[in-house]
Design a protein around this nucleic acid. Structure first.
Length: 593
RNA sequence: GCCCCUGUAGCUCAACGGACAGAGCACCUGCCUUCUAAGCAGUAGGUUGUGGGUUCGAAUCCCGCCAGGGGCGCCA
């Protein structure tokens, strides 16, 4: 946001160093740790160290400070920079806060819901995420991939990319066969009632249990799989009907979570193309068909690549009975995506960490087969959600917290809390607040965490509406709105409408707030580059916290007319930035709560 | 046996190789005639698992070790 000044100063520093034979290291700019003022800084340790390496006898820290002091004199009269200081080897440049505050606030109010967005990159990116299995329960374990993938899509789009949101439900596989078997055997003819997904999950869990108790039944399963593979009309019809029940359940779930998709792929559709890919791999000698010896079709990747140390290992790409595996289908799907969208710059898979080897194998095999698209494929992995005591969420073990239950509980709790805090809310307001707060409380802790870190789900944390959580940020947004409402909206500032004027000594809390708002666009870029919603979750909280400090320290509505006008614009800018950041997380910013 | 991830305050987590390692929760002390207290201010809490190395500078990069989790030819 302050590129111009930065450029001028960099040029001056470079000129000075060149003229004095100082081997300037690359300049990196960072915000100054907050001390009531606002600015940016760079250090000269690298430069001093470079001198030392060249044989000059210096104590690095001391020399860095010397250089900083010399440079300081060169840049003391840059317009817009109020003060320059050299401290501990750092050169600190403090903004003319009035000028910059005006600039930041005006930018936000001008760009509105586009504030923080990046310029169009011209790149189309596909993000595949969620991948629920039909015929199974949708539980907290699935929540993370769905929420994370959705946030990544929102962030990449905002950062300037064209995003294709892809879902890839697992609608065929051993689990589905198991379900169909259980249904035919114990629930034939039954129809799902209200909680479809829940009922589907129960049927599956029962089938899984029966088979575990009596392994002899597995023969029946294999027979059923064979009937499917030969497309026995009766089985296909049953599969189509019951699959639709699940998909309907998913649609309801996604609507409740405020998540949408542009395209659906189904692994059942990739079975045949996948087998064709495998056949070709065998023909070309990349895959080895061991079926004659009772084995499967495999790709000895390390051997094919001539590696002596095991790295990519061996991948099974087709079962010995000729039925398709996920790897079979993923080979075809990867190519399928590029046929549908030939201009994809990236094809990203948001899938949990356990599939890491699987995806490196799939992408490597495609690369070996000469498909250049493979290099555009990447796996963004995330850790699992576990239950307290490190219990893995499993529909088979019955250790599940169903998403329906979670959503219902969160909403109910949020509703009760909202009613308690603000009894004046109407029924309709309560309704929307409950949804926004309940959902936000659910999403935020998942997103405000490194993807590589495990999330332990427990009800207490999930439903804690205090502290560093979505409701805190939403509340800041509500308070902004409340101030603007009380003040009757933004004031007309005369002929210079659209220009904020901060002609008074700014309170440190105001400067802190402005500082945080100005960092938002940079965080968007970082979050997009690293597929890291955490960066947005953090800055959103930082802005909310800064606002809470401002709210406490700086009266707005009752302030002097000039101060009031300026602060109202700052409040409006804060509200906008909070809304933008929450939107990137898929969290609603309510007007009241 | 090989590979990946994690280890930071009592707990849950931040920290882009840079200044004094920061938040929340829990605990304790204050603050609602004043823009919504889902809030604010303050106290306390640390040998960043461990031993080396690189660097002017390491929680961060490299190597070893310890501990926990995950993955390794027919689950998805």
């Amino acid at each position: 946001m302050f590129q111009t000044e930065r450029q001028i100063i960099e040029t001056k520093i470079k000129t000075f160093c060149a003229a004095n034979g100082i081997p300037l290291a690359a300049l990196e700019w960072k915000p100054i740790p907050f001390s009531g003022e606002w600015g940016f800084s760079t250090s000269f340790f690298g430069t001093a160290a470079a001198e030392a390496r060249l044989g000059k006898k210096v104590v690095v820290a001391q020399r860095a400070q010397e250089i900083a002091e010399q440079v300081k004199n060169q840049v003391s009269d840059v317009p817009g920079i109020r003060r320059v200081e050299a401290v501990k080897g750092y050169l600190n440049l403090y903004f003319d806060t009035q000028e910059y505050t005006r600039r930041v606030v005006d930018t936000v109010l001008e760009k509105k819901n586009r504030f923080g967005s990046g310029p169009a990159t011209g790149q189309r990116v596909m993000i595949e995420f969620s991948q629920p299995n039909t015929h199974k329960a949708f539980h907290v374990g699935h929540l993370r991939g769905t929420i994370l993938g959705d946030a990544i899509c929102r962030i990449l789009e905002f950062a300037g990319n064209e995003v294709v949101r892809a879902n890839y439900p697992g609608d065929m596989g051993l689990h589905v066969i198991k379900w169909l078997w259980g249904y035919l055997k114990f629930h034939d003819g039954e129809e799902p009632a209200t909680d479809i997904a829940k009922w589907m999950g129960e049927v599956y869990a029962e089938a899984a249990h029966r088979i575990e108790e009596n392994p002899d039944l597995e023969a029946e399963l294999r027979a059923l799989y064979a009937r499917w593979d030969q497309r026995d009309p009766e089985i296909v019809a049953l599969w189509e009907r019951t699959r639709e029940w699940s998909l309907e359940g998913f649609r309801q779930m996604y609507a409740a979570l405020d998540v949408r998709f542009d395209v659906y792929y189904f692994n059942s559709q990739e079975e045949k193309p996948g087998k064709e890919v495998v056949e070709e791999l065998v023909r070309r000698g990349i895959a080895t068909d061991e079926r004659a010896q009772g084995g499967a079709v495999i790709v000895k990747i390390d051997e094919v690549l001539g590696l002596t140390k095991e790295q990519f290992r061996t991948a099974v790409v087709l079962r010995s009975d000729g039925t398709a595996l996920y790897s079979t289908e993923d080979l075809a799907l990867a190519l399928h995506k590029f046929r549908d969208y030939p201009d994809l710059a990236k094809s990203v898979y948001v899938v949990d960490v356990r599939q890491s080897l699987h995806f490196t194998q799939v992408f490597k095999i495609l690369e070996i087969a000469g498909h250049a698209q493979a290099q555009k494929c990447s796996h963004v992995s995330y850790e699992l959600v576990t239950l307290p005591g490190n219990v893995v969420v499993s529909s088979r073990e019955g250790t599940v917290v169903l998403l329906e239950d979670l959503l219902r509980e969160a909403t109910t709790r949020a509703r009760a809390e909202a009613h308690k805090k603000n009894p004046s809310l109407t029924e309709a307001q309560l309704e929307s607040v409950a949804k926004a707060v309940g959902l936000g409380a659910l999403k935020y802790p998942i997103l405000a965490r490194e993807n590589t870190k495990m999330v332990t789900f427990d009800w207490q944390t999930a439903l804690d509406f205090n502290g560093q959580a979505a409701p805190y940020i939403q509340y800041a947004h509500v308070r902004c709105n409340s101030i603007l409402r009380k003040a009757g909206g933004l004031p007309d500032v005369g002929p210079d409408v659209g220009c904020s004027t901060f002609d008074y000594e700014l309170n440190p809390a105001e400067i802190q707030l402005i500082d945080m708002i100005s960092r938002f666009p940079g965080e968007v870029q970082r979050a997009a580059a690293e597929y890291k919603p955490l960066a947005i979750a953090s800055i959103a909280y930082d802005i909310a916290k800064a606002f809470a400090g401002f709210y406490d320290a700086c009266p707005v509505v009752q302030a002097e007319p000039q101060v009031r006008a300026a602060r109202l614009r700052l409040v409006a800018a804060t509200m906008q930035t909070l809304a933008n950041s929450l939107a990137l997380l898929g969290i609603t910013a309510p007007e009241v709560m």
